[in-house]
Design a protein around this nucleic acid. Structure first.
Length: 437
RNA sequence: GUGGGUGUAGCUCAGUUGGUUUAGAGCGCCAGUUUGUGGUACUGGAGGUCGCGGGUUCGAUUCCCGUCACCCACCCCA
């Protein structure tokens, strides 16, 4: 048989056990937070009809779809995100009780050029509330975000929020109405933190071509104190759209404050978010300890997306976790660690005569809920069994040799410090069951 | 998509100013020192079409061209 070179598609990757174990632990904590906030899990197909995805992400996005013809000649594509399939599902299920709260953790595919931290297949983790307008839903979403970061023990963090209405007002005020141009200006403003105000003004002047009077107005806007909503209201005096946006943020902030999650929130009028479909609140999150990795959690309100499928317009607000960034951050902070095996106890097989006892003890451990594995393979080299446990970071080794069996006991060795305890089987199982969670 | 850089063992990298004969190191892996005990130490071993294709040459892992992959920056995002 011809040998085939083992290889993997560019931008795709295997998640090996050493990463999957801590990764799943992280997801499990996240799911707990979704659950206690009343979000239900949803699963949608990897493949969708192309027409359901096309035209939702802009021209650039359409080009990045993985698009095929299936064996039946249907024009299909791999999902590009989780939000559009959610909208499709909501449009197809008119009987859903609103507000509808769902979360979904699943891979999405984009035919982009891969780079550092950028893949063609990656996971998104979204929670959204469909069918609830106003600050209440916003506060619930922010509460989820705060809850997750607390559950993950990331340390300090700041959720910076803004409102698209602020930009709508600002840009209408200086006569920028063309959606294309609006998006361009907003994308440029979004780079403020990265490249600084001078460079932003430069780009707006030369590349976007804004007149001097507009630039002046934007410079004045950028010099507003973040978080000073009163000053912002004065600046936008008479601009109904912007004032409504500022008021909406103020009530979100005050409800969040009273709920007890306000400490992590701040208003930052410069943040913009790249996606065009946001219509209200927008926010992103940076970790105090690792600001350089960028936003680990972001989202906003996107009323209107549902109506693209001909369904009634539904209010919608959501949150999206940057799970790969969060995972990297947790490793960096040593809040989680890579681990090759879930096994808590390796039960060694001392010799042929000990095999039955080893298997029986292993079975009893499993019945008590302890992750246990019995050594597989030849028993000639007893030391190799310990080496195996050590390499797989298995914390405990059980020994049932002739000496132990003669006493009706089992020896439990803790590999971390080399200490050993001689216990009855029942005692050993009880001890191990209580130390392994 | 544009520009720059790098491809030698599972990983991180030396090296060959073109030359026969065994292309090396550290880590990792396997085995032994140690037939009731891993992590340390010592000893030995396996593992390489020098990314792939073509060209120049008496001779290419080394030089040239192409190609693919990876890295960095820009763009865009998660």
């Amino acid at each position: 048989m011809a040998k085939i070179q083992a290889r993997i598609l560019r931008g795709f990757r295997d998640y090996l056990p050493a990463d999957m174990i801590p990764r799943r632990a992280m997801f499990s904590k996240v799911e707990d937070v979704f659950r206690i906030h009343g979000f239900a899990p949803l699963l949608t197909p990897a493949l969708e009809y192309s027409e359901c995805l096309l035209g939702k992400y802009g021209d650039e996005g359409d080009k990045l779809l993985y698009r095929f013809e299936d064996n039946g000649g249907r024009d299909i594509a791999l999902r590009y995100d989780l939000t559009v399939p959610l909208a499709r599902m909501v449009a197809m299920n008119g009987g859903l009780t609103l507000p509808f709260k769902r979360y979904q953790i699943a891979p999405v595919w984009r035919a982009e050029k891969p780079g550092r931290g950028r893949f063609r297949e990656f996971f998104q983790c979204d929670a959204d509330i469909i069918g609830a307008a106003g600050p209440d839903a916003e506060v619930e979403i922010l509460s989820v975000g705060v809850g997750i970061l607390k559950a993950l023990h990331v340390g300090g963090f700041t959720i910076s929020m803004n409102h698209r209405g602020v930009f709508d007002g600002l840009l209408a005020g200086i006569g920028v109405e063309d959606p294309e141009k609006k998006a361009e200006v907003i994308r440029t403003l979004d780079k403020l933190d990265k490249i600084g105000q001078d460079r932003v003004m430069e780009i707006l002047a030369s590349e976007v071509g804004l007149p001097a009077s507009s630039l002046e107005r934007i410079a004045e806007f950028l010099s507003l104190e973040d978080g000073d909503l009163d000053a912002a209201k004065t600046f936008f005096d008479g601009d109904e759209v912007a004032i409504a946006a500022l008021d909406s943020m103020a009530s979100t902030l005050s409800l969040a404050q009273e709920m007890g999650i306000g400490d992590h929130l701040e208003v930052r009028l410069s943040i913009a978010r790249g996606l065009d479909y946001y219509t209200g609140l927008i926010y992103e999150t940076t970790l105090t300890a690792l600001p350089d990795i960028g936003s680990v959690m972001s989202g906003g309100r996107y009323d209107g997306l549902m109506s693209m499928f001909g369904a009634p317009a539904h209010a919608a607000v959501g949150i999206s976790l940057g799970v790969d960034r969060l995972y990297a951050a947790l490793l960096e902070l040593e809040e989680i660690e890579r681990k090759e095996s879930p096994t808590e106890v390796l039960v060694t097989v001392f010799d042929e005569e000990s095999r039955t006892a080893a298997f029986q003890f292993t079975h009893a451990l499993r019945a008590a809920g302890v992750a246990a594995e019995v050594h597989l393979g030849n028993t000639k080299k007893f030391g190799k069994q310990f080496r195996y446990a050590d390499k797989k970071q298995i914390p405990y080794v059980a020994i049932l040799g002739p000496d132990e069996r003669a006493e009706g006991k089992v020896r439990i060795r803790t590999l971390a410090d080399g200490s050993e305890q001689l216990l009855s089987n029942a005692e050993a199982i009880q001890t191990l069951a209580s130390t392994s969670s």
